[in-house]
Design a binder for these strands. Structure first.
Lengths: 171, 171
DNA sequence: CCTACCGATCGGTAGG
DNA sequence: CCTACCGATCGGTAGG
């Protein structure tokens, strides 16, 4: 068993795992080092600060959801097809990247104001894609005309976000 | 303005506020003291440890939801009335005790194994009340016969829990 | 990636 | 509730 040098992305991945499990403030650089078989101080040859690690994980989450939304938005077919793509895409992101998704959802508020605002903007945009697909669907007859796109999008996203909660150990 | 001595419950309330906002590990005893106009060390005349504070806040949350569920469960009328009571009760708890509810939902996993298990049991029980009211409603004709009580209860609780997320500042 | 270390902050205690 | 303090741990750096 040869011990291989860790890469920057090994560090970010491990950070995502620990941030998801214990939270950002519950994770020390020494604990993160141990997770990788390193000392805490060794991490600083890969990253500049602990906060930078959080930024990287959270922005990876934002990117994953944005990409999924963009793919769904440009899906051919009816609004119904696009909503299906949004839902499938969301579920896929959460199941394939549980740790990133959980960190994105729960630890983004630990970011400094500047980065946190960017993440909130990204979430707003994501929700607006749901809302506009729902509104399209009301217009093109995919959905009942008495639904309110804003309310419906909040409900759908609520159920989707609950996926993360259900992947917590012991639940 | 006379400065009044703080009580045990002042300390627990302030802890709930800070735990909800910054997380358990993001809250130091010194910061909690400052929130109350005290030094961190002064808190130890009111509580034995930081972990005890988390236990108190989370168990207060568990108690609030349990009481609401118990009230709803024993409500006279149809299963539909009991479901309405469950939903109203949940919303009332979250809106009247945002900080406790948020700490209960997000920080319970920071408890030591023993207390965390108790909280998970309480949540299971809470969800089972929803499920059994839904099952009753299918039987007594309150709800459509093709709904699955378990799935429906998860969906309803997902939307209800999203309430907490929406009360976060900036959302 | 480790050794050796830094100042700051942590949870908590003794004594008043 | 404060003063004065404890050992442990924190994020991070210099130098190799």
């Amino acid at each position: 068993m040869v011990s291989i040098r860790k890469t920057h992305s090994d560090v970010v991945d491990a950070a995502g795992r620990l941030f998801a499990e214990r939270g950002y403030h519950g994770t020390s650089m020494r604990a993160l080092g141990k997770e990788l078989g390193l000392l805490g101080s060794s991490l600083y040859s890969h990253v500049d600060s602990k906060q930078d690690l959080l930024v990287e994980v959270v922005e990876e989450g934002a990117r994953l959801f944005e990409t999924s939304a963009e793919d769904a938005r440009t899906t051919q077919g009816t609004a119904r097809d696009r909503l299906a793509a949004l839902v499938t895409g969301h579920v896929t992101v959460v199941l394939d990247h549980v740790d990133v998704a959980r960190t994105f959802l729960n630890e983004a508020r630990m970011l400094d104001a500047e980065h946190r605002d960017r993440v909130l903007d990204a979430r707003d945009h994501y929700e607006r894609v749901f809302r506009s697909v729902l509104a399209d669907g009301v217009r093109d007859g995919s959905f009942r005309s008495d639904i309110d796109p804003k309310t419906a999008s909040i409900y759908i996203l609520s159920v989707l976000n609950a996926l993360e909660r259900m992947t917590r150990p012991g639940h």
